[in-house]
Every structure is written in C-alpha cells, then in structure tokens.
C-alpha cells in the first residue's frame, strides 16, 4: 500500500492493526519518538483546515520527523495555475510523504498517480476524509471495546457530510451493525452510500427525523455539522443548520455508556453544556486522530 486515498483501500486487518498501533503509541509515546527521525512530511492544504493540518503536523513531530508545506491555495503555486500533478511531483523531491487537502473531489487520487512518495488524503471536498474515519473507528473501539454488534446513530447533515459516508462504509465491514440515520429529509444519506451497505446481511439501516425518540437505542451517536461550504445557496443552509441540537436534557434517556462523537468543528449542534458529560468523546476523537495519523505515517513510510 503506497497511499491512503479512500478508506475502502484498507483491509479490515490493516485497520485493526492501525488501531492497535495507535493504542500502543498512546501508552508508550517515548518508544515512537524517534521513528521518523530524518523524514519529512509535506502538508499541502489547498483549502484551510486548522484541525487536520495541525494533527498531521503534531503526529510527525511526535515521531521525530519534520514538517513543511502550505495552509491555503493562495500561498502555493496553485494560485499561479499549477496543476496538482506538477505540485506533488515537485514536492516529492522535498518530502518523504504528503498529506493533502483539496476542495476538488478526487484531487488526492490525481496526486497519487503523479507523486513518487505516499499521498494521504486529508479531505477532498465533500468526497473522502479517510484519516477522520480512522480516528472515528479508533475512538469507537476504545470507548466500546469492539467494532461489531453496535447501534450507531448518525445525526445532522448526512447528505454532504463526508465523515458520515466514510464511517458508514468502514463500519459496514464489521458484523451486526444497526445504523440509524437521523436527519431532515433534505439532508438524508445518499443512495450510493446506502447501496454500499445494502448487501451486508447482518446490517440494518433505518432513517428517522426524530433524534430524541431513537437516542435510548444508541451505543454511539455521531453528530455532524451542517456545513455551509457544501451548500449551493445560503437560504437552504440557514433553513437547515439548526435542525438538530444535542442538549443535556435530550440525553436524559440515553444509555449510560453512550459514546457521543463529532468530527468537529461544531457550530451549535452540541450544546457546550454536554462537554462535561462523561459520554462526550469528541475531544478524545481529536487526540485519537493524532495517534492514528502517527500509526498511518509509520505504515506508509514502512517504519518498523
């Protein structure tokens, strides 16, 4: 495996191995602090993303490596009209591995076809964000102790939310998963995502508009932001952005061991008062994401 563009490119055993490594890194950080000494990670962010970029950079620093790159297209040669292929061919001469975010869907695939070093997709428009999915899987495994036999609720923007698409696809490879999709009709999970899980006999998928009604059934609640940048017009965004807001009052009937997750950043879909609830896992997700990215960088660089 040279690159990570889409979560479906990883086998289940590779995912399990990455989770295992990330857990070991978390428990024994000193063991890994020199693993990438002398290696360089280039973070090519053609679209702003503080969280993901810093997570990659922190991951590489904690492995003893170095980081270079840019954080917006206007500070790169893309502003002069350079193609993605040319950019990564150039950067391949400077760095050992590239993490790329791009607003256009499929840009990391185009990059992987041109680059001579591994490419990690750090998000391509509304399409894929595999390292977020790895962080999510890692969090579910750590919080629930398993990745099978779970009822997972996904709430909010299920139409444009790429993190949900990837999570559904990744979780569908484990047994006995019941998905409950909670969203307004306009933001329902696209058919192509549903069709990916339809052929798994042990899975169920339900759709509802009522968050509170299904909350007591959930082992995992994955909240998402209604993302302004994915809408073609602002009127639709304003109408739908407040559809689902999680508050302490709504959580009274939820399971005691519910894991509340969110890819962040949030706007107002999880009330700040929920942060103190022990079931809130979204900041643990951020931390898990860094350890998972460390495990992934090591894997792609073939560092033992």
């Amino acid at each position: 495996m040279k690159d990570l563009i889409d979560i479906s490119e990883l086998t289940t055993s590779e995912i399990d191995q990455l989770i295992e490594t990330s857990c070991d890194i978390m428990q024994n950080p000193a063991k890994y602090s020199e693993k990438c000494r002398g290696k360089k990670l280039a973070t090519l962010f053609f679209e702003p993303s503080t969280r993901t970029r810093l997570s990659f950079e922190a991951a590489m620093y904690e492995l003893g490596g170095a980081v270079l790159g840019f954080s917006a297209a206007d500070s790169s040669s893309a502003a002069k009209g350079e193609s993605v292929s040319d950019t990564v061919k150039t950067v391949s001469c400077y760095a050992d591995i590239i993490a790329m975010r791009h607003p256009k869907e499929g840009a990391p695939r185009a990059a992987a076809m041109a680059a001579s070093v591994p490419i990690i997709n750090a998000g391509d428009g509304g399409h894929n964000h595999p390292t977020q999915t790895l962080a999510d899987l890692c969090t579910i495994k750590k919080e629930k102790g398993r990745l099978d036999a779970l009822t997972i609720g996904c709430c909010g923007d299920l139409k444009f939310g790429r993190t949900v698409h990837s999570l559904v696809e990744a979780m569908s490879r484990y047994e006995n998963i019941r998905f409950i999709m909670i969203s307004p009709e306009e933001l329902r999970l696209p058919e192509f995502v549903k069709s990916n899980i339809a052929h798994h006999a042990s899975h169920e998928i339900e759709e509802t508009e009522d968050l509170q009604q299904v909350l007591p059934e959930l082992d995992v609640l994955y909240m998402t932001r209604v993302q302004k940048e994915r809408f073609f017009n602002e009127a639709d965004y304003i109408r739908l952005k407040d559809s689902y807001i999680l508050t302490p009052a709504k959580l009274t009937n939820a399971k005691a061991d519910l894991a509340i997750m969110h890819p962040l950043p949030r706007v107002n879909e999880i009330s700040v008062a929920v942060d103190n609830d022990p079931r809130a896992c979204y900041f643990k997700q951020v931390l898990n994401g860094k350890f998972m990215r460390m495990a992934l960088i090591m894997k792609l660089l073939e560092v033992e």
């Binding site: 193609s83 993605v84 391509d124």
Partner: peptide
C-alpha cells in the same frame, strides 16, 4: 459530469 470533480479544473487528467 460532477462539477466538483478535479477533472473539471485539470483537464489534462
């Protein structure tokens, strides 16, 4: 035909 696809802006792909 996806207007968000990279092939719409990088037509040499």
């Amino acid at each position: 035909k996806n207007p968000r696809c990279i092939t719409t802006t990088e037509q040499e792909l």
